[in-house]
Computed example of a mutant assay.
Amino acid sequence: MSNVIRLRHALPMSPEINKALTDLDSAIAKAIEASKASGLPQGLIVADLHGHAHAQTHQMVTE
C-alpha cells in the first residue's frame, strides 16, 4: 500500500513499533491480494476487515 500516507503519532515511535506496523500492513495487503486472486468478492473482504476492526475496538474499550 505504497500510496497510503501514514499519520504521525504524537510521540515518537520506536523502530521496533514502526517495523511491526510495516510488517502488519504488508501481511494485510498480501492477504487481501490473495483473497482477490482466489475470487472472493471485494465486499466480503471489506466486511471481514471491518468486523475484525470492530472486534478489536470493542476489546480495547472494554478491557
Rank of each mutant, 00 (worst) to 15 (best):
K36G: 03
I32T: 08
I5G: 06
I28Q: 04
D48R: 13
A31M: 04
H58A: 00
S26P: 05
L40D: 08
S38M: 04
G51F: 07
T22H: 15
L7S: 13
T57W: 06
I28M: 02
M13N: 14
K36D: 03
H52T: 00
H9W: 06
K36I: 01
M1R: 10
V61R: 09
S38F: 05
L49Q: 07
P15M: 04
V61E: 01
Q56K: 00
V4T: 11
L11P: 05
T57M: 04
I28L: 06
M60D: 03
I17Q: 15
A47Y: 00
R8T: 08
L40K: 09
T22G: 14
R6M: 11
P15I: 12
H58Y: 00
I28G: 02
A53G: 01
A55C: 00
Q59I: 00
D23I: 03
V61M: 05
V46A: 04
A47I: 01
G51T: 02
H58Q: 02
E16Y: 06
M60Y: 12
T22C: 13
L24K: 04
L44K: 14
G43E: 08
S26A: 15
Q42V: 03
A55M: 03
S26N: 15
V46N: 13
A55K: 06
E16V: 04
I17D: 15
M13P: 13
A34C: 08
D23F: 07
M1I: 09
A27C: 14
K36L: 06
L24E: 11
I45V: 08
S35Q: 10
A47G: 03
I5S: 10
V61S: 02
S14I: 00
A10M: 10
P15F: 07
V61C: 01
D25I: 11
P15Q: 05
I32V: 11
E16W: 02
I45G: 08
L21E: 12
G43N: 04
T57C: 01
H58R: 04
L24N: 04
E63R: 09
A27W: 08
G43M: 01
D25A: 13
Q59F: 06
N18L: 13
M60H: 09
A29F: 07
D25P: 10
A20T: 10
N18R: 15
R8M: 12
R6H: 12
D25V: 10
A47W: 00
I28P: 05
H54P: 02
S14T: 07
E33R: 04
A34D: 15
T22R: 14
A34V: 04
T57K: 03
P15R: 01
G39T: 03
A53C: 00
Q56I: 00
I32W: 09
E63M: 07
G43D: 06
H58C: 00
K36A: 02
S38R: 05
L40F: 03
S38L: 02
A53D: 00
H50I: 02
N18Q: 15
Q42G: 07
G39H: 06
K30H: 10
I45M: 03
D48I: 07
E16A: 13
G51W: 09
H9M: 12
D23V: 10
T57E: 09
H52M: 01
A27T: 13
S35R: 01
V61A: 01
V4Q: 14
H9R: 03
A34H: 10
S14N: 06
I5E: 13
L21D: 12
S35I: 01
V4W: 12
N3I: 05
E63P: 02
A31W: 05
A37M: 06
I5M: 10
G39A: 04
A27D: 15
L11T: 09
A10I: 05
T57Y: 05
